[in-house]
């Protein structure tokens, strides 16, 4: 086999290893620490105004995030906002509405396991990395051809009294 082919296959392996590092950085690089998260309950609709004056339009950056998703809604209203501080290896459960709770487990390395409860029944469990700048959106249909969303992301803000202690 020629030296050129050997060099080419070596280059191939090198590229593969490099791509592996780019896609999955080495574990343990990010320190285990508390995660400060913001959870927003949002209503997506084509109505320009919400019938409830307490519902405020979503902040521009949140609205932009949601508009990047493949949905047709033109308006997004914030129904509720919670700030959670999830201790390392711990979990926090909060009610985002009377019918909907979320539980977030901090698995370390900015990875979370999110459980969604509807009417106190476990609906969904999802594990994923949620580093700063990454956003997780849970969503579903709401009455009258509208949608609900729970937007979850890391925040720099200090956890408030709204947070519940880790279990």
């Amino acid at each position: 086999m020629s030296a050129k082919v050997t060099a080419a296959c070596g280059l191939g392996w090198f590229c593969a290893a490099l791509a592996g590092l780019v896609m999955n950085p080495l574990p343990g690089v990010a320190a285990e620490s508390n995660l400060k998260l913001e959870a927003l309950l949002i209503w997506g609709t084509n109505d320009a105004q919400s019938s409830d004056p307490k519902h405020k339009p979503a902040a521009p950056e949140v609205r932009k995030k949601l508009q990047e998703l493949p949905f047709k809604w033109t308006s997004y209203f914030v129904i509720n906002r919670k700030v959670l501080e999830v201790p390392a290896k711990g979990s926090v459960k909060v009610a985002v509405s009377e019918k909907c709770d979320i539980e977030v487990k901090n698995l370390g390395n900015a990875t979370v396991e999110v459980s969604l409860f509807g009417k106190h029944e476990h609906v969904l469990n999802r594990k994923q990395a949620l580093p700063k700048g990454e956003t997780m959106v849970l969503g579903g249909n709401a009455p009258n051809a509208t949608s609900w969303f729970v937007v979850l992301k890391q925040t720099e803000a200090t956890a408030t009294a709204e947070s519940q202690p880790g279990k």
């Binding site: 995030k65 990047e68 998703l69 509405s97 019918k99 909907c100 969604l116 509807g118 009417k119 609906v123 969904l124 999802r126 994923q128 990454e134 956003t135 997780m136 959106v137 849970l138 969503g139 579903g140 249909n141 709401a142 009455p143 609900w148």
Partner: peptide, 13 residues
């Protein structure tokens, strides 16, 4: 951004 869309069962959350 990751979207997890719950298509069923329908409910008003």
């Amino acid at each position: 951004t990751t979207l997890v869309w719950l298509s069923y069962p329908a409910d008003n959350e």
